[in-house]
């Protein structure tokens, strides 16, 4: 007789209970798996549909002409997306430059310096900022930011910093890259602050104390200890803000001016991709290929967002691998 048959105790549960539990377990695993598949499938489906609808244009023009072409005259069948791509990148980059440094400082203050009473008061306000609908931000931008740029900021920048081409423009209005960037920066800042703050609060206190015990000040602790430890998370937060900035439509199209041109300064008007699609879809559809051109714009936007996401994921992995 093999010894194992004696060593293993017999289960006290009846067979039916065991079978039930096994079925339950399997159902949970499979159900979860199927629903987890939906998001990636949906991305593929959306991309596929866009590619199919964009095909009439994509098959007729060389890709370089579509992506680098500067002339957008649908009636003459000229479809250059470069002004729109450039507009998207200009507004997004400017928004990030405006949003990231103050957001990080805010997050550092909230996570490291603020007493919990102040944090309990400020955090919900910041979260509220993230919940305001984008059209409200757009309206605010039109009545507050655009006139402020036109009457005060633009003349000042032109006069004081006009020797830098970034601040030189003959745009007489306030509708500009800068207006879009300011509105966007205000919109994405709450996301960056919330994520960065959360990540920094997760750094173990023991690590902070190890630095403070040596006689380091708060800032001497934040900079070499807390920031490196939370760098991957902070970067993920910035990536979240970036994705949102790239795709934000309503608030931006209300204040950027929507002029088809490649912006050369912050004070120039721009016409980002989402604004192009939202402004024109459903109109002038009798123009041949117009519908297909707008679908191409959507596809390009999707690819740009995916590329940025991929890049930030790779960067994240690198940093995490180095931190291990």
């Amino acid at each position: 007789m093999p010894p194992s048959s004696r060593v293993l105790p017999k289960s006290h549960h009846p067979v039916s209970v065991l079978r039930m539990r096994r079925r339950q377990e399997r159902a949970a695993a499979w159900g979860g798996f199927v629903f987890t598949l939906f998001p990636p499938l949906l991305v593929l489906l959306v991309a596929g549909l866009l590619a199919w609808r964009a095909w009439p244009i994509l098959s007729r023009y060389p890709l370089s002409e579509l992506l680098m072409g500067r002339s957008w005259r649908p009636l003459q069948r000229e479809f250059g997306f470069y002004p729109f791509i450039a507009g998207t990148l200009w507004v997004t980059c400017a928004a990030l430059v405006l949003a990231v440094p103050p957001s990080l400082l805010t997050a550092i203050y909230l996570a490291e310096y603020a007493p919990s009473s102040v944090r309990a008061f400020l955090k919900p306000m910041l979260d509220l900022l993230a919940a305001i609908p984008s059209v409200v931000y757009g309206a605010w931008g039109m009545v507050a930011i655009v006139p402020a740029i036109q009457n005060t900021l633009a003349p000042f920048l032109r006069r004081q910093l006009g020797f830098i081409s970034l601040f030189r423009s003959d745009n007489p209005t306030g509708f500009s890259v800068l207006a879009g960037a300011i509105v966007l920066a205000v919109m994405i800042a709450p996301f960056i602050i919330a994520v960065a703050c959360e990540v920094m609060r997760n750094v173990p206190d023991g690590l902070r104390h190890a630095s403070l015990a040596v006689g380091a000040t708060r800032w001497q602790t934040v900079y070499p200890v807390v920031l490196p430890k939370s760098a991957p998370g902070i970067l993920a937060g910035i990536g979240l803000g970036l994705s949102r900035a790239l795709g934000e439509t309503m608030a931006v199209l209300m204040v950027v001016g929507n002029v088809v041109q490649v912006p050369r300064s912050l004070l120039d008007a721009a016409y980002p991709l989402p604004a192009l699609i939202a402004n024109n879809y459903g109109e002038m559809m009798s123009i041949p290929l117009y519908d297909s051109a707008l679908m191409s714009a959507a596809l390009i936007l999707l690819i740009v967002v995916l590329a940025f996401n991929l890049a930030s994921t790779i960067l994240l992995r690198r940093i995490q691998a180095r931190a291990r």
Binding site: G206, L207, A210, A213, V214, A216, P224, K229
Partner: peptide
């Protein structure tokens, strides 16, 4: 910071800095 420069404290659990 001057006090902590004079008076060191080693925690129970080690926390190497990153």
């Amino acid at each position: 910071t001057e006090i902590r420069k004079k008076v060191g404290l080693l925690a129970q659990r080690p926390y190497p800095l990153p």
